[in-house]
Design a protein around this nucleic acid. Structure first.
Lengths: 186, 186
DNA sequence: TTGACTGTACCGGCTGGACGGTATAGTTGC
DNA sequence: GCAACTATACCGTCCAGCCGGTACAGTCAA
């Protein structure tokens, strides 16, 4: 029970706790996230949880940071090509990949929002940054902004489990935008 | 202090309570909405609050219903003209009007979501309904869907206090969409 | 090599406060 | 005289954060 072949037991437990927090938030509702429930879900005691995250706020903060770093890493790689419209294209691709993964990105984010809206400040800042980059390197800033907003809406719907458009419709929507982007009409 | 020129004291108090709930949700965060805080904000005793809404769940339900009825009334009126693209045009106009009003629509909705995501089911259903109508009476369903999603994104951002685009940018975005709709390009 | 000591990772019980809801007795205005 | 409240007290539950442990791996000195 005390072997340690994994790279880091600590990092693994941290990750399990973050995953557990998202699962619980999705199951019980963003406002009903309790530390006890998270600990139980992760198979860790409450003390153990508080060892890794000294307060609930820190846990939610980590949840936001984790979400951000995943998105950011995926984007920077794709965006580095430097072609025109690279930023918006990467943004759309990233969404498609994220959507294709079975794991619903689900919202520990909503739990963070429920507890303290300020926790989402980093996300707001990053989103503004994305839009600026998207407009900067696009051939048609207005249209690129439209594409950005469409992706934003699709993500928001997934987060809220809304499903106004199904998977296929969302994909065809993205395809439609991509085609317009390459045609470059004004 | 005890004048009563309004049509109904009961309805007035109900409205004040709903407004107070939204204000508190915005100030304390959606997950920190307490009945005591709402009663205090509205200048009503806790007993009075529970007289009108026998449980917190009922209050949140009423918040959702209130939001829905306002949106619906505004839309049906504008949509009744029967012209092509009437639905999506009405949807966009409605957003602009709502945005122009000083009152941030703010989200008692988020409070409802935090407590129990199922409370938003009526909103999801209505949103699906809107999209269906929008596609049905539009000259270019794909483009109408894009417009719908853009408005959706702008609303979501307002709700989350994101402000990625400012008022003027949002308006110019809507204007851009409107122009495309009237040109009727494929 | 052994025994004292240290730091890390984690356990689980407890407490104090917040909050939803109940109860009840009184008050005001139409 | 009833509907629409006010005022206050109270109960039970939930929950964040705290704290005193435990297990164990590594270190280092004698």
């Amino acid at each position: 029970m005390t072997h340690d072949t994994a790279p880091s037991r600590k990092a693994d437990t941290r990750m399990r706790l973050l995953d557990a927090a998202e699962a619980v938030a999705r199951r019980l509702g963003p406002g009903n996230l309790s530390l006890d429930a998270v600990a139980a879900e992760a198979g860790v005691s409450k003390g153990g949880l508080l060892y890794h995250f000294p307060s609930k706020s820190k846990l939610l903060e980590a949840l936001v940071a984790h979400h951000l770093s995943r998105l950011d890493a995926a984007l920077r790689a794709e965006e580095a090509t430097g072609r025109p419209n690279a930023a918006i294209t990467a943004y759309m691709d990233q969404f498609l990949q994220e959507a294709a993964r079975q794991k619903p990105p689900a919202s520990g984010l909503l739990a963070a929002l429920a507890e303290n809206p300020q926790l989402l400040d980093p996300i707001r800042a990053r989103e503004r940054d994305f839009l600026a980059r998207i407009r900067a390197d696009s051939t048609d800033p207005d249209f690129a902004t439209v594409a950005f907003l469409v992706v934003h809406a699709l993500r928001a719907m997934k987060m809220l489990d809304t499903e106004v458009l199904d998977e296929a419709e969302a994909q065809s929507m993205i395809g439609w935008l991509n085609r317009r982007l390459q045609d470059g009409d004004t």
